[in-house]
Design a binder for these strands. Structure first.
Length: 276
DNA sequence: AGTTAAACCTGGTTGC
DNA sequence: TGCAACCAGGTTTAAC
């Protein structure tokens, strides 16, 4: 479930409650994408600061005796979810990281283990900096103007869907929202990025923002009762206008929604109203 | 240098 | 019922 809206909703769900908590211990399950990068014991006694989000990453800063003590960079991968609970239930098969604190346990559950929890001495120091340095702009950053977005697209020759997915220009757009935003903008996902006109680029940026923004609003309700890792239910499915709708009529023009594969990922679009 | 495949994993669904 | 094939919300790494 983790594209930008889901990650942001997740962050908001525990940031206020965990801030100020003292880390008691850390429990590791099966290996995630990368090693933690420090001994679990070395985190005990640190105090948790204000959780931030960058792209699909969550940064959890830590302090010890009032001084910065690095932090944890978390990623939910494809199937990860975070829960912060006051009653630490016995861990399950797919619970691979527990941050046990004075205010509850922050737990990462991730069946596929593409997720990550990595300690870094600072956000702007390796390994965190290496993971974040290639990221593009935050979608709602006002510095990302239509002109800047268009100029960035002009520098890429690949299919616009893959360019969006890559996150090098704007972060947070995953497979579902890339499809949805391109539908909203009326742009064929196979269009080469550098062949998109300035007005259409402006429209696409607006569509990305509208799509992510609406998901952010709905995401709350979708995730509120989210339980297992395959939680794209109700709210989303109902909202998606092309994603997962292969063979069904387009809600706008009635043509059948198509599925093609780009970059080994499914792309859904309407050839009737999405043009190159 | 920029674009594209392969890799990392588990589990659910589909089809023979 | 069994089993193979395919699919899944991501991103790094290796290879053209």
């Amino acid at each position: 479930m983790p594209e930008l809206p889901e990650v942001e909703v997740t962050r908001r769900s525990f940031a206020d409650r965990i801030e100020g908590a003292i880390v008691r211990s850390v429990r590791l399950g099966a290996p995630l994408r990368w090693p933690l990068g420090c001994t679990p014991a070395s985190l005990a006694g640190t105090r948790v600061g204000a959780a931030e989000r960058r792209g699909k990453y969550i940064w959890l800063p830590l302090r010890r005796d009032g001084a910065p003590a690095g932090g944890l960079l978390l990623h939910l991968g494809m199937s990860g979810s975070l829960a912060f609970g006051t009653a630490p239930a016995p861990h399950g098969k797919h619970d691979h990281f527990d941050l046990v604190t004075s205010r509850g346990v922050l737990r990462l559950t991730d069946p596929r283990r593409f997720g990550a929890v990595v300690w870094s001495p600072a956000l702007d120091a390796p390994p965190a900096s290496a993971l974040l340095s290639k990221l593009g702009a935050e979608p709602f950053d006002t510095a990302l103007t239509p002109q800047a977005f268009h100029a960035a697209l002009q520098r890429r020759s690949g299919a616009v869907k893959l360019v969006l997915l890559g996150g090098g220009i704007v972060v947070g757009v995953g497979n579902i929202y890339a499809c949805e935003a391109l539908f909203d903008a009326g742009i064929d996902p196979r269009t080469r990025a550098n062949r998109i006109s300035r007005p259409r680029a402006a429209r696409l940026l607006a569509s990305v923002r509208a799509t992510l923004g609406r998901a952010l609003e709905l995401g709350g309700s979708t995730l509120r009762d989210f339980r297992d890792a395959h939680g794209m239910d109700g709210g989303y499915q109902a909202q998606a206008r092309v994603y997962g709708r292969e063979g069904q009529p387009c809600v706008r023009c009635g043509a059948l929604v198509r599925r093609v594969v780009q970059g080994q990922r499914s792309t859904y679009f309407c050839a009737g109203c999405q043009r190159r």
